[in-house]
Structures are given as structure tokens and as C-alpha cells.
Design a protein around this nucleic acid. Structure first.
Lengths: 214, 214
DNA sequence: TGCAAATATAGACAGCGTCAAGATGCCTTG
DNA sequence: CAAGGCATCTTGACGCTGTCTATATTTGCA
């Protein structure tokens, strides 16, 4: 009938048998990952958790991979909502200083650590290396990064940031820092949660200094 | 019959039936991971690859986890050998400048990207989150980080780096950057391999500036 | 009303980690 | 040199996994 658009993480479907199976699968998957880790998530357990048979999820997601992609997309939506809040609500030009950067960093790390089940999927090799990730997921990720670069360009335009800074390179490096810190914390390599704030602030100091005098 | 002393997952064994099974398992595991990815490594495939039965590896490693720990340890040995070369061969005080930092960063990224099969295990959540990693592996990792911090302290002692820099915080943040870049490259999120050098140098610039004027 | 599509189900298959028993070969000790 | 012990390797089995292939049920629409 309607041209099946490869249905990968498709638009709203309204299931009838079970209710809203698709949504429940996504939520249950995130919960399972949060509680038992990504490795412990299995399609069968997931199906059992929402009370359907093993193969029922396959009518909403072609793959386990597709399911994970959809969870990651949900993560990106939450990510954008949280991290870019100040862009929507206030003029960045009015507030940009080291403190603002500190806030941004803390928001980022906070999201990563407290939504690890999403962050792992969004920026983990599992999906990205597989070359099977949804086009919409790629878009979502690309947009998120673009917002980040644009923010820097915006600061530059407002003469709040040195024009000698290459926004793309700066974004790549600083995002690497944020991502690295997040990963080290999530993966349990950096354990001292007391030090998170100090580390964040040290990073902010570094970023700010670079923005001013580069 | 060398005594591989710190091998924790098993005492030094000298297999006779197969030859040096333990070593061959470690090498084959690294190869399999390199060629097909960590997820594709199975104990059965590994056993098949070296020509023994499925359960033979379990006489050398109690777990799949233990096997992976041993591979990671091998990775740490290579890592230290490559990254800390200039510490052993030359006086750091004589050469430390932005160019030296550039070199260090490139070495680090280079190792990570070209030895991804080891890097994934060494600094990936799979082992670290599991709380089952070998004590010797923890030591190895701790030592690597300590070398990194000490290097900064060394620079400070030589008055080449501002004393206002907190070596620990600086090490944490800058390592986060290196780790983040490595992960983003390995995981296929940063794809433009052309940009690696530019990114590395941008990071070096950032680090150097911080070291001088903080 | 009837038909096609959407949705759910059970059955089956190959692959996985790994435990339990049994077989094989080497080293040490008497 | 014989005997026992032990490290090593093998086969068998169990429960788990992802997912393919039917088959059954429900729904929306002509």
C-alpha cells in the first residue's frame, strides 16, 4: 500500500493488538540497558519484558540493530533538548564567558553519565562501526554536531571569540575532550566522581583560554 | 621457558601438546578482533583458528573475560613501548615544546587507530565496567596513567611548564581529549582521516597554550 | 461482506559460553 | 623402569542468543 519506506525506525505506527508495542519496546530496551548493561539486552528478554512472544518485536524493527538505532535516536532527541537549552531560551551572546562554558560542559557530562544507556548507543562504536545505521540516525548525529559548530561561529560573530580559531577544528577537539571524559567516566576508568566537577572546570578553563587568545 | 611474571590470568604454563597454545591464542584473538571486530570474537572460532577443540582454551584462561584481559595486557605493553619511547631515549627537558607535544599526540592517536583491537580492550567499557578485570591489568593501566602525570611533573620541574597547572587535572583533561579523539576515530564517528593531523595539531596548540599561560 | 495488510505466534536452526566427564600424553617419584 | 599424578585436550550437553519460516489472528478498507 503506502510505499514501505524501508521502515527503519519509521514514523508513527499505531499498533492495535498489544497497544503501543513499538514505544513500549523502546522504553523497555532503554530500561534493560540501564539496569543490566547493553550486552545483557536480548530481543527475547525484551519481548518477555513487555509480554509478547519472541518474534513479535521483529514486526516493528527489522533487526536488533534497528531497535538499537531507534533507541539511539530517542537519545539524540533528549540530548538536544538538554544540551541546547540555553540556545533556545537566551541570547548566547549575552552570557558567553568561562562560566557559561563551565555550565555547558557540566550539562554535557551530566547527560552522558546520567543517560549512559542512551549515550553508549548514540556515540558508541557498536552502531557506528556497523555501517548499518539508519539514515535518520546519521542525520540526527550530524545535526547535533552542526549545532555545536554553529554555536562557536555564533560566538565568533559576536566578537566574543578570537577569529583566529577555526570553528571546525575547535569543535572537533573540544568535543573530543567532552566525549573522552564522558567515556572514561561511563566506562568506569575514571572512578572518582568527586573529581568530575574539577575536571570539568579545568576543561572549561582550557577551552576558554583557547577561545580568547588563539 | 621464560617466566612471564605478571601474567595473572594464569601462571606461566608451558604447553606441550599443542606447542605454545597460550601465546597462539592471544595472537589469534588479537588478529580475529582486528579483522572482524571484538563482537565477532568467539571462543569457539578462536579455538578453531588455532586448531584445537572448543574447550581447550579454557585450560589456559578461566573465562572469555580472562582471555580478553590478557590481550589487553599485551596491548598495554606495546602501548608503553611506543608512547614512552622519547622518555627512555632522550631528556624530555631538552626537547619539550609545542612540536614535542604534537609528536606525542600523533604517537598516541597513531597507536590507538592502528592497534584498535588492543585499544578497544585496554580502554573500553567492556572490561572495565565488568568489575572482573585482572589486578595486573589494573596495575598496568594505572602505571600508564602515572607515567603520563609524571611526565607533566617532570616538565614542571624543569620550569618548562607553568607551576599553576595542576598536573593531575591537566593529565585527566588532556588524556580525555586524546582518548576522545581516538574513540571517535576508531568508532567511525570521525571519518575524515585527512583531518586527523589537523585535529592533532589543534589539540597540541591547545595543550601547549594551557601549559604556558595557565 | 470479504480481502489484503498488519500484527502476533510457535517451531526450528545455527551459533554462543561454559560446565562435566572422559581420554591422552608428559613429568616426577619411588 | 614402572606407577601414579597432573596438565592438557576432547566430546557431550545445557541453556541462551538472533532470526528465518510458516501459521494464526486481528484490523482497516473496498
Amino acid at each position: 500500500m503506502s510505499k514501505s519506506e524501508i521502515s527503519a525506525c519509521a514514523t508513527e505506527v499505531k499498533p492495535y493488538h498489544h497497544g503501543d508495542l513499538r514505544r513500549q519496546l523502546l522504553d523497555a530496551a532503554a530500561n534493560l540497558i540501564r539496569e543490566e548493561g547493553e550486552a545483557a539486552l536480548s530481543m527475547r528478554k525484551l519481548a518477555l519484558a513487555v509480554g509478547v512472544s519472541r518474534t513479535a518485536p521483529y514486526h516493528h524493527f527489522s533487526d536488533k540493530q534497528a531497535l538499537l538505532c531507534a533507541v539511539a535516536e530517542e537519545g539524540f532527541r533528549r540530548f538536544r533538548r538538554i544540551v541546547t537549552t540555553h540556545l533556545d531560551t537566551a541570547e548566547p551572546a549575552a552570557v558567553i564567558d568561562e562560566a557559561a562554558i563551565r555550565l555547558f560542559i557540566r550539562r554535557y557530562i551530566d547527560f552522558a553519565v546520567n543517560n549512559a544507556e542512551y549515550y553508549d548507543l548514540m556515540f558508541g562504536g557498536h552502531l557506528w562501526k556497523s555501517e548499518q545505521l539508519t539514515a535518520s540516525l546519521k542525520d540526527e548525529a550530524y545535526t547535533s554536531f552542526k549545532v555545536y559548530v554553529d554555536q562557536i561561529r555564533c560566538w565568533q560573530k559576536a566578537r566574543l571569540v578570537s577569529l583566529t580559531v577555526d570553528p571546525l577544528r575547535y569543535a572537533q577537539v573540544s568535543w573530543s575532550t567532552l566525549h573522552g571524559m564522558s567515556r572514561l567516566l561511563i566506562d568506569g576508568i575514571y572512578l572518582d566522581s568527586e573529581a568530575v566537577a574539577a575536571m570539568s572546570d579545568a576543561a572549561a578553563n582550557m577551552f576558554w583560554q583557547q577561545l580568547q587568545t588563539a
